[in-house]
């Protein structure tokens, strides 16, 4: 019910943005960011409700991960409105809102059962919470980078392309340390505590590493290639698609230790 209300808020936000999107006077709509914030808060409330029910932080299933990711992206959409230096904020907010809707739609699909279940022993760990939360906060920034990279490829104006490129880089530069800490460092520490191995080449770990290597390659290519190169947005898009495959695809196509999320 709460998640449905959040979904409606995001639809309202997207619709309001769409109405104002094509206005030439550049006037911003007065409601979309508030609707996005409302969606984020509702999703946070849903997580708190589930956490109270299981007496543990509700971040241990695919459904909970998806609403957390959607919540983060919705709050990012709200925050974008206050980054006054951004001239291209409208397009990025629009893309990010659409992504938050996609995540929430996936959460309501049969792929992500919403049953409230307390965690099995291996999941009862503070390191797991750090692992999941930092990974998804990093991925929320990767989502923003993904939208910027698509806009960069679509833009015809050189100045706009540069603007999107700078924003994509900023998003990745913020998301990368968080993702590295969450997915690789905290994940490895949790694995050591739970299973006695830092790393076991489990499919989810391997694909997490591939995501990290893709963004690492992006950050290093930035140092040696021109910013206008199409390789940059392509790597950002590839990185996000790989991150999403790591999140969803591995669970359904490959088996391993991460069968629960």
């Amino acid at each position: 019910m709460i998640a449905t209300a959040a979904f409606v808020c995001l639809i309202v936000s997207l619709a309001a943005q769409a109405v104002f999107f094509f206005r030439k006077d550049g006037k911003k709509d007065p409601v979309s960011h508030w609707a996005a914030l409302a969606a984020g808060l509702l999703l946070a409330a849903e997580m708190i409700r589930r956490s109270l029910a299981i007496r543990f932080v509700a971040l241990t299933s695919m459904y909970e991960s998806l609403i957390f990711l959607s919540c983060l992206v919705a709050i990012l959409v709200f925050a974008l409105r206050f980054m006054r230096k951004l001239k291209t904020e409208r397009a990025i907010a629009f893309g990010a809102t659409a992504l938050a809707i996609v995540f929430l739609a996936l959460a309501s699909s049969p792929l992500a059962p919403d049953a409230i279940q307390p965690p099995v022993p291996a999941l009862q760990s503070g390191w797991l919470l750090l692992h999941v939360s930092f990974t998804f906060i990093g991925e929320a920034f990767f989502a923003a980078g993904f939208v910027c990279a698509i806009l960069q490829l679509a833009a015809k104006d050189e100045e706009k392309r540069r603007g999107y490129d700078r924003l994509a880089y900023t998003s990745i530069a913020i998301g990368y340390p968080l993702f590295t800490a969450g997915a690789l460092v905290f994940g490895a520490i949790w694995a050591e505590k739970a299973w006695g191995v830092w790393w076991s080449w489990d499919p989810k770990e391997t694909w997490g590493l591939i995501t990290w290597l893709t963004y690492t390659a992006y950050l290093h290519f930035r140092l040696v290639r021109k910013n206008t190169s199409k390789l940059m947005p392509i790597l950002v898009i590839a990185g996000f698609l790989i991150a999403m495959f790591t999140f969803f695809g591995v669970n359904f196509l490959l088996t391993g230790l991460h069968s629960y999320a």
Partner: peptide
């Protein structure tokens, strides 16, 4: 060289993709 680093990262990523697709 950063170019060498980027090149090696890409190669390691490609091999990891193969290892990620084919069960090991």
């Amino acid at each position: 060289s950063v170019k060498l680093a980027a090149f090696l990262i890409v190669l390691l990523a490609i091999l990891s993709v193969v290892g990620g697709i084919i069960p090991q």
